[in-house]
Structures are given as structure tokens and as C-alpha cells.
Amino acid sequence: TVPSATPPATSPPTPGPTRWKPPREPIGEVVGTGIWYGVDQRVYYLVAVDVPEGPRVRVGLMAGRRSPAGELTNDIVINDVQGSDRRPGFHEIGYDDTTPSDARPPVPTFGYFVGPAARIVGTVGGRQVDARLARWSTDPELVVFWFDPVDLTPGVRLDGIVARDRSGRLL
């Protein structure tokens, strides 16, 4: 079922190791998902982050919503807290932690992979679930992925995740 429309969130994510700043312009294009909450569409986009302990971490992946007028509402941002945001492989994976009292709709499990991924498959309870993919417009090596909430309930933790190239080889 598709969640009903809800009012936008009014506060930033819970503070963590990243100094989160109020919404800034997305870096590159906003990725539409085809997942709707009333008239708002679930979208993903890269944003600048400031991680003092990780100077090579400059971007985070935001799960947000886009209104018909094009306005963006931020819901959850994920980012590395050390190393490099462009190292090959999987980076942080975002899991929804909503409670029934939260004003925002649930966020599908999401993340990004750096490398030639053509397919990303998560495993939960022995069942394989394919992720939807979109290459970042600014750096095509960065692949944004998310799991359709029809296939994987938001908040359910993956038991494993793999990426494969166009030939089906494990990355």
C-alpha cells in the first residue's frame, strides 16, 4: 500500500557525527523513485556534509520528498564518518526508524555504491530483493539504490547485500 500524504518534517535528523546544516541545493540531479505519498514523490539526492574527522567525506545521500511545485523536504541523510565518500564499494545504508507518531512517511531502505554496479540485491530472511538503481549525474561511478517498500518493508534490516556488474560478476 502507498502511504497517504503527511505534512513535511520540520526538524533536521537527530544530530550525529555529521554537522547537519539546513537544506542546501542538491549536488547534481534529484533522483525520482516513482514512490508517492499523496502528491509528494520520494526522491534521493546528494548534499554537502561537513565531517571534521573525515575530511574526504564531502557528500551525504538525502532521502527526501519533492512536491508538485518542486520543493524538497529532507527526511534522512546518511554519510560516511571516516575514510572517503568515493572509496569503491557500499557505503552507509539508511534504514527508517519512524514510529507511529512521526509526521513523515516511511523511508525505503537506501544507500549508495561506488563502482560499476548494474544490479544490487539485498537478502532478508533468505529472500532476495532487487534494489532500484540510478547513477549520480555528477559522478556516474556513484550508484544510488533503494528498495521498493512493496518488496522490502521500510526499517527491516538486510541480512546481506551484494553488487554485481553487467556480466553478473560479484563486485
Rank of each mutant, 00 (worst) to 15 (best):
N79H: 10
L142T: 12
S11E: 07
P12H: 04
L133C: 08
V121L: 13
S84M: 05
V43P: 01
G32L: 10
G16S: 12
W136F: 13
T1N: 04
G34D: 01
G89D: 05
A163H: 11
V124C: 03
T73M: 07
V144R: 02
V31L: 02
A117P: 07
R86F: 15
G28I: 09
A117W: 11
P22R: 11
E141H: 11
F113D: 10
G32S: 09
E53A: 14
V77W: 09
V129K: 04
S84V: 06
A117Y: 10
G115V: 07
E53K: 03
V81F: 09
A103N: 14
R135I: 06
P55L: 02
G28T: 04
V121R: 11
A9T: 08
T153K: 06
Y95T: 09
L72M: 08
V124T: 11
P17Q: 15
P106T: 09
T14P: 08
I78C: 06
S67R: 12
I27A: 15
R169A: 12
V43R: 07
D139E: 12
R86C: 13
R66S: 05
G111W: 08
G70I: 09
V49L: 05
L152H: 02
T10Q: 15
P149G: 05
V129M: 00
Q41V: 11
R19I: 15
T153R: 11
T6F: 13
V107E: 02
P17V: 09
Y112M: 06
D159Q: 06
D102V: 12
P116F: 05
R19C: 00
A117M: 00
D85I: 05
R66M: 14
V51Y: 08
A118Q: 09
V150M: 04
R127V: 04
W146D: 00
A69E: 02
P17D: 15
R66L: 09
Y112R: 07
